[in-house]
């Protein structure tokens, strides 16, 4: 049960039950859809960028507790951030989530509430759930024209 409790921490269950910034954005300047082919999770991320900053961010879709909570936490943590800050934060988070379970976050990286996602490091197949919303955000901000999947995220 212990590793399950570290995966499903209270904050994860809370954001799963009541996801923040859930819905679409009327004035979105960027948006993308993401898809986890393993389990059928779908997420649609909307971003309203003003200047170089994320003014509003929201998401909708259906997914497991980890994917829903991670997207919800993402919207909370990125509001007001510059695009560069947002994308480099995702890089750091992804690096953190694909490290062996006991690796501490790198010095200088403040994950805040997102540290709660660290439980997925014991569940390699669930890393993709935790990064789906983020990959989708990245696609919204840097569109490649390809559908987003999470097929490349797992322990090396």
């Amino acid at each position: 049960m212990n590793s399950l409790l570290s995966l499903y921490q209270d904050i994860i269950l809370d954001h799963n039950r009541s996801p923040r910034n859930f819905g679409s954005l009327k004035h979105a300047t960027h948006e993308a859809q993401g898809f986890n082919p393993l389990c059928g999770d779908k997420v649609h991320v909307y971003v309203e960028v003003e200047g170089n900053r994320i003014r509003e961010i929201a998401f909708e879709g259906s997914g497991c507790a980890i994917s829903t909570a991670s997207s919800s936490l993402m919207t909370e943590s990125l509001k007001g951030k510059t695009l560069d800050e947002a994308l480099s934060f995702f890089e750091s988070l992804r690096h953190f989530l694909t490290q062996p379970p006991d690796t501490p976050p790198p010095a200088g990286l403040d994950l805040g509430k997102l540290a709660a996602l660290g439980g997925v490091r014991q569940y390699p197949t669930r890393v993709k759930c935790a990064t789906l919303g983020w990959h989708t955000l990245q696609a919204a901000l840097k569109p490649s024209g390809l559908p987003v999947t999470t097929e490349h995220d797992s322990h090396a």
Binding site: M1, S3, Y8, G40, G63, C64, A65, I66, T68
Partner: peptide, 22 residues
């Protein structure tokens, strides 16, 4: 209220292998 993927992970921890997905 519980996504099948999460159910699958909890069952796996108890040694129970099921399929969760589409």
């Amino acid at each position: 209220g519980i996504h099948p993927h999460d159910v699958g992970t909890v069952l796996d921890q108890q040694g129970v292998a099921v399929r969760a997905g589409h």
